[in-house]
Structures are given as structure tokens and as C-alpha cells.
Write a protein that binds this DNA or RNA. Structure first.
Lengths: 210, 210
DNA sequence: TAACTTAATGACTGATTGGTCATTAAGTTA
DNA sequence: TAACTTAATGACCAATCAGTCATTAAGTTA
């Protein structure tokens, strides 16, 4: 098969998301500066000029990729937290499972690695991401921890620090997949990983009976 | 004070490490592609041509920054593991503390973030880092977990997965510091963070008494 | 079906930066 | 102290790539 590009086709409605998806893939893999717009265009099946019909600049494309992303998953988590009636640990479990299903197993999964890599280069975008993604996710975990401590289900721990320790393995799981996982012979099984994490949490968080 | 550069000074012996230190700072902050050699030279107090007296290329400089780094800390950990006589949990605690003191509180602390960001762009270097840093660190944690499970101190868990979950918060702590921490109003206290992590681990790893 | 609108193209321009090297200046040697 | 060696310099060159725009081609309209 030759490398003849497909004939031109107008797709005004679909283009933005096609371009964003292509850009996300390459930004996640290579980082912002090392990604060439020629490659993004090729990945999307268009020419480079087409990118500038829909995005003002490379940076505008990058920002849209981050901004049009994971917020709906956070909204779902907020709903789960607001109507939960079981134990605090069950809530925590549901929140982490929802986060995993909505981000960890979707095309958004590369965003944590991308934000990790680029936050110092794009502080305003990092701020946006922090306010709209990280802070909201933390608040959900906080609500589960607060409930558990209040009811005596969980031991007393500093909540802000415990959120960090609870979330870290989940973040690391997706970040790892898009960075160092290529060097590892085996693949991490997310179900098993989550099971171990939850097991350690369940026992670790329990308030010690006197 | 004017911007007159300091007079030229020959420092053949000290130059390589000075250049590497300057490069590490900027590579960690901006990533490989977004770092300009002009800036590295300026940070080191030299001109750009000086970089090429000691390093063949930008990529050679980058590789040296990773390769001449954290391996001695891994050696120390291996020694700690080989001569430990207390409980398995005490071993684990010592290993994590040693890792923190040797990496987390030194100028090498940025390397995990840098490798996270650049591993897909430099797969051979990522392989080197995996073999010489990550694998060895994991082996140390594995030795503590194996001891604990064998002696009945710890519950039975899949060791490879548990290593991931044990290490993730430590990695995330340093990665976070060099990426998203700028957006967070408060700073994470590493001592408290480690204390919470170890508390959750101590209880989470315990084998349940029947 | 011709005239028109508009999405797409990719050659081109200008800015940027890695890498080079003729020159300069700091030390060393005789 | 002059001759020599060598570490350092920064202007320069060539390659690269973001962004532009005249042109082309896909649809739409009258």
C-alpha cells in the first residue's frame, strides 16, 4: 500500500475532537515541546494547516486537551459521595473504582502523566487542573475519611496527609503506565493492584479496638 | 549591579559536576526538549561552548545527569537489608527512611519526575534507570515483605503488587514536589506524610489474628 | 451546471536553537 | 618574561519547526 494520503474530506464538526485526541496521544508520549505539529496532523489524518483552522496555536491546542477532559468524572464522584449510605470504607472504595473506570481506563488516563511533566512549563494550566480535578478529587476522598473518623470506623489521622497517601498509588498506577512501564517485563494488573491497595487501606484505616 | 559575567576561570576538574548540576535543575523543571543549552550554560556560569568541551551533545549531558546519580543510595539499602535483624516492618521502615534521606532530601530528588517525563523519549536510558534504580529498590522492599510473610508478621499478599503500592506514595511525594506542588497553597510535610504512610502500612500489612 | 463558499492543503517564511570553531585569555613551562 | 598550552568564549551556521497564506478542492446554492 502506498503512502498516498486519503482524499480531502470536510469534517468541520468532528475535526476538533479528532485533532485533540491525536494531540493528546502525542503530548502524553513525548511532552509538549518534543511533539511536532506535523506529527499531530499526520496522526489525525490532516495537514498541518488544518490545525490552525481550529486552534490558534500549539499552546491553545495543548490547553484544550487538558481543559476538555476529566471534569465530568469528578462530577460523578461528587454525586456518589453525596448520596452514599453505607460504610465510610465502602464509599472510599466506590470513589476509587469510579475514578478508575472514568479516567484510568479511558483515553484521559495519560493526562496525569502529562500534567506531571508539563505543570512547571504551564503554571496557569496546572492551576486550572489543580482546582478542577485534583482539589475536587481530594475533597471526595476527604468526605469518606471524615465520615469514617467521625463514626469511629477509621483511626484518627491527619486528613490532608491521608488523602495524599490514599491517592498516590492510583496516580502512580496511571503515571507509570505512560512512562516507565515500557521497561518492565511484566504489566501491572490494575484489578490486583487496586485489590491490594484497598486491602492495605481497609486494615490500615481501621480504628484499633481497645 | 550590572549583568557583566564573571571573568573567565579555568575549572577543569569541577566543571563536569557543575554543568551536570545546572543541567539537572533545568531538565527537571522544564524537561529535555524545552531546556535550552544557553540557559544551562548561564545557570552554570559559563558560555555555551564550554558545555561541548565536556559533553558531546545535549543528549550526552542529559544521560550523564541520570547515570551519575542515585545508585550509591541503592547500594546502602542493599547493605541495610543484608544485615538487618529486627522485625520485617522495622526493615521496611529503615529502607524507606534511607531512601528518603539519600534521594528525597537531596538534589537527586528531581530525577523520578524527570524520568517519568522523559522515559518514552529515551527508552534506553529508561531501561538503565529501571535496571539500576527501580529494580534494585523493589528488590529491597521485596526482601522485607518476604520476611514478614514468612515469619507470619505480615498477611499473605502478592509481593510484586504490594511493592508497587508500598513504593507509590514515596515516588509520588517527590514527583509531586517537582510538578504540581507549585499550585498547592500548602506544602506537604514529608515527615508527617511518611508517618501516615507507615501507620497505614503497619496496620494494613499485619496478619489478622484468628 | 455555473457560481460561490469554505474546509483543507503544504510550500514557504522567520524565529529558534543545537552544535561549531576562530579567537581570546588563563595558566604553565622553559 | 616570552613562548606555549589549553580552557573558555560567543558569533555564526545549518537544521528544525511554529505559524502563515495563496491555492486547491469539497460541498452548497441559485
Amino acid at each position: 500500500m502506498s503512502n498516498i494520503s486519503p482524499p480531502r474530506k470536510r469534517r468541520k464538526e468532528a475535526r476538533p475532537s479528532e485533532l485533540s485526541a491525536a494531540a493528546l496521544d502525542l503530548f502524553v508520549e513525548k511532552g509538549f515541546a518534543a511533539t511536532r505539529l506535523e506529527d499531530v496532523a499526520q496522526r489525525a489524518g490532516v495537514s498541518k494547516g488544518t490545525l490552525y483552522l481550529y486552534f490558534d496555536s500549539k499552546e491553545a491546542l495543548f490547553k484544550s486537551v487538558i481543559e476538555d477532559g476529566v471534569v465530568p468524572v469528578l462530577v460523578e464522584g461528587e454525586e456518589i459521595a453525596s448520596r452514599h449510605e453505607g460504610s465510610a470504607f465502602e464509599l472510599l472504595e466506590k470513589l476509587l473504582a469510579n475514578w478508575w473506570a472514568g479516567i484510568g481506563e479511558t483515553s484521559f488516563a495519560g493526562i496525569p502523566k502529562l500534567m506531571t511533566a508539563e505543570s512547571r512549563n504551564f503554571p496557569e494550566l496546572a492551576q486550572f487542573y489543580y482546582e478542577n480535578v485534583i482539589r475536587r478529587g481530594r475533597a471526595q476522598v476527604a468526605s469518606a475519611l471524615e465520615r469514617g473518623i467521625a463514626s469511629g470506623e477509621f483511626r484518627k489521622l491527619d486528613i490532608e496527609t491521608t488523602i495524599d497517601v490514599v491517592i498516590a498509588p492510583i496516580l502512580m498506577l496511571v503515571i507509570w503506565r505512560y512512562s516507565m512501564a515500557c521497561c518492565q517485563g511484566t504489566q501491572v494488573d490494575p484489578q490486583q493492584y487496586m485489590a491490594v491497595h484497598l486491602t492495605l487501606l481497609r486494615e490500615g484505616l481501621k480504628r484499633t479496638q481497645v
